[in-house]
C-alpha cells in the first residue's frame, strides 16, 4: 500500500513541479508549487517526520507561498510580455542543461555506497517533537538563536527596501 502511495505521490510531485515551471500564468505556477509542497509533506509523513511535515505545510504552503501569491497579485503581470517564452533554442538548451545536470547527479548516486539502515526501534523517535526539541535547544541552541538575528535583519532590510522614498 505504502509503495503504491509513494509512486503516486512521486508522480504528483514531479507533475506539479513541471507545471510550476512551465505554466504561462504565474498564478498557476504558485498553485502548482503549493500542490508540490503538499506532496512533499506526504513524503515526510511517510518517513515518520510528522513535525517536519506540519511545519513544512505551515511555513511553505501557509506563509511563503502566500507571500508569492500576494506579490503576483500585487504586480498583476498576467498580460505582461514577461510570460512570453524564450526562443526555442534557449528553451532546448535549458532543458538539456538541466537534464544533464540531473543525469550527472544520478550518475553520482550510482557511484555512492549508501549506508545500511539503522535499528528500526530507534526510528519511531527520530521525527518526534520531543527529540527534535531536545536537539534544537541543546546542540543547536546557538544557531537557533542566531536565526532570530537573521530574521530581525531580514525584517529591517525588507522594511527599508520597500519603503517609498520621501
Amino acid at each position: 500500500m505504502q509503495q503504491i502511495l509513494f509512486y503516486i505521490l512521486a508522480l504528483l510531485a514531479i507533475a506539479f513541479s513541471i507545471a510550476t515551471i512551465t505554466s504561462r500564468n504565474a498564478m498557476y505556477s504558485v498553485l502548482s508549487l503549493v500542490a508540490t509542497f503538499f506532496a512533499l509533506a506526504g513524503f515526510y509523513l511517510m518517513l515518520n517526520a510528522e513535525f517536519v511535515a506540519f511545519v513544512h505545510i505551515i511555513v511553505y504552503a501557509g506563509a511563503i507561498m502566500v507571500l508569492f501569491l500576494f506579490v503576483v497579485m500585487m504586480l498583476n503581470l498576467n498580460q505582461s510580455p514577461v510570460n512570453i517564452p524564450r526562443p526555442l533554442l534557449a528553451r532546448l538548451a535549458a532543458v538539456v542543461a538541466g537534464g544533464i545536470f540531473g543525469l550527472t547527479l544520478v550518475a553520482a548516486l550510482s557511484q555512492t555506497i549508501l549506508p545500511t539502515s539503522a535499528e528500526s526501534t530507534a526510528l519511531a523517535e527520530v521525527g518526534s517533537v520531543r527529540t527534535l526539541g531536545k536537539m534544537l535547544f541543546n546542540e543547536f541552541l546557538l544557531p537557533f538563536e542566531l536565526t532570530s538575528v537573521l530574521f530581525i535583519a531580514t525584517m529591517v532590510g525588507v522594511v527599508v527596501l520597500t519603503k517609498k522614498e520621501e
Binding site: 514531479i14 513541479s17 508569492f68 504586480l75 542543461a97 540531473g102
Partner: peptide
C-alpha cells in the same frame, strides 16, 4: 525535483 528546479531557473524569464 532538483533538476526540474534548475531547468526552471534556466528556462523562465519571469523573476517570480
Amino acid at each position: 525535483l532538483f533538476s526540474i528546479g534548475v531547468i526552471g531557473v534556466l528556462l523562465r524569464r519571469n523573476m517570480i
